[in-house]
Amino acid sequence: MSSNNTRLWTWHVLAGLILVVLLGLHMFGMHLNDLFHLESLNPEGGSPIDWANVAARAQAIGQVVFYILFLGFALYHGLYGLRNILLELNPSEGMAKFISRGILIAGVILFAFGTWAAIAARSTALAAL
């Protein structure tokens, strides 16, 4: 493994460890809410996807930062894993470059879009107050 690949792989492992925490919090807040009653994530009560809860989370700057970090680590971990799987299929050198660049571009676009959505959601939620 080249030093660059070693560095990317190390980040993949570290991003995975960070995601256990970030995605774990997200899953507990969204899907184990009835069991654990995480009121800080669902302050208005009811379902986590009720607009009142969505707006309350969107307004909190900490949640916006959480979403952006979560988005970045999840995209990196997931897309690097996908790249590794595709490169294991023994593509030609040109195809391997195309896959790597295509995945990088897709990741940057998705990150930009998701970041915009997290920031714009805060404005939408604040305007609805």
Binding site: W51, V54, A55, A58, L71, A74, L75, G78, L79, G81, L82, I85, L110, F113, G114, W116, A117, A118, A120, A121, S123, T124, A125, A128
Partner: peptide
């Protein structure tokens, strides 16, 4: 690997679905 690919596919769709909160209630 199978679960990783499934989660990635869901996650990309999830980004677009949840982005609707940015437009309006």
């Amino acid at each position: 690997r199978v679960t990783g690919l499934g989660i990635l596919l869901y996650f990309v769709m999830h980004i677009f679905v949840t982005a609707t909160r940015s437009i309006s209630q």
